[in-house]
């Protein structure tokens, strides 16, 4: 498994007269973990949707290894790019293993059965998210956090070289937030993820892009991006940023009151 280079070049997205995303450019070099942060409604999910081909940009281009993601057949793109999206599950008695097996679909021909190799890929995907013990459980009976881990396993089973995740740590308890992000970090693939938790973003991401009202307001290594001034501007909150004594990553601490900048 290799890694893919992602280039978002001048992408604009509109919904009616409203701009969801305006002239956004972003690069993820092969193997990098890139975090997308910003307040609710800043356009994170919309931007991610242009990468996994649900929202077509009104202007600009999404390039995957140099090729336009929107001119590839959907199936071809799905062999390179996998995503974890926020979508409610339907109630159809699927076992966890069957849900994860869906991830193999873009690699399979019509009527081809699951091979031992597929089974191995599915097993290792379940292992990566600490869900082996859930394999035979009905998916629709899992807790929110367990479901989220299974959906990540499904994306891993796709064997992507670029993985796009929209709030993958939602619904997860702190132990599983850390273990899931650890697993993503270990992947050789390029990872682009939207995150709410700035401290997790600071620790796990190589670089951050900050979205505010559909535009990129800052980008770079976490230590350069996460400053009290930026947090005041973008989130409108007061915060201290220190260096975490153990990890060396920037550590954001919020406190009540108006930001004084």
């Amino acid at each position: 498994m290799t890694a893919t280079e992602l280039t978002i070049a001048g992408v604009t997205l509109t919904a009616g007269a409203r701009h969801l995303v305006r002239d956004v450019s972003l690069t993820a070099r092969p193997g990098e973990t890139i975090g997308l942060v910003g307040p609710n409604g800043s356009g994170k999910s919309s931007l991610l949707r242009t990468v996994y081909r649900v929202l077509r940009p009104a202007a600009g281009q999404v390039r995957v290894d140099g090729g336009d993601a929107w001119s590839l057949p959907v199936r071809r793109l799905a062999r390179t790019v996998a995503a974890v999206v926020q979508d409610p599950a339907a109630d159809f008695d699927l076992a966890v293993r069957e849900v994860v097996a869906m991830g193999r679909t873009p690699h399979k021909r019509l009527l081809a059965g699951d091979t031992p190799e597929d089974a191995e890929i599915i097993d290792s995907a379940l292992l990566a998210v600490d869900a082996v013990h859930l394999a035979d459980h009905p998916f629709d009976r899992l807790s929110g956090g367990e479901r989220q881990r299974v959906l990540i396993a499904r994306a891993l089973a796709q064997r992507p070289t670029l993985l796009v995740l929209d709030e993958p740590t939602n619904h997860l308890d702190i132990r599983h937030q850390l273990s899931v992000l650890d697993a993503l970090r270990r992947l050789p693939a390029t990872v682009l993820l939207a995150l709410h938790d700035l401290n997790l973003a600071a620790y796990y991401c190589d670089r951050l892009y900050v979205l505010h009202d559909g535009e990129i307001t800052a980008s770079g290594p976490p230590a350069e991006v996460l400053t009290p001034r930026l947090l005041a501007e973008v989130y409108g909150v007061a915060a201290d940023v220190t260096v975490h004594p153990r990890t060396g990553a920037p550590q954001v601490t919020f406190f009540p009151g108006e930001p004084r900048i």
């Binding site: 996998a82 995503a83 599950a89 339907a90 699927l94 869906m102 679909t105 796009v164």
Partner: peptide
């Protein structure tokens, strides 16, 4: 329908998810 059984499975995952797994 049998030939499309895998794709029918994908529909259960939802439209967006099905797209990310290669279904038009």
């Amino acid at each position: 329908l049998m030939a499309q059984a895998r794709n029918l499975n994908l529909l259960l995952a939802g439209e967006e998810a099905a797209t990310t797994m290669g279904l038009d």
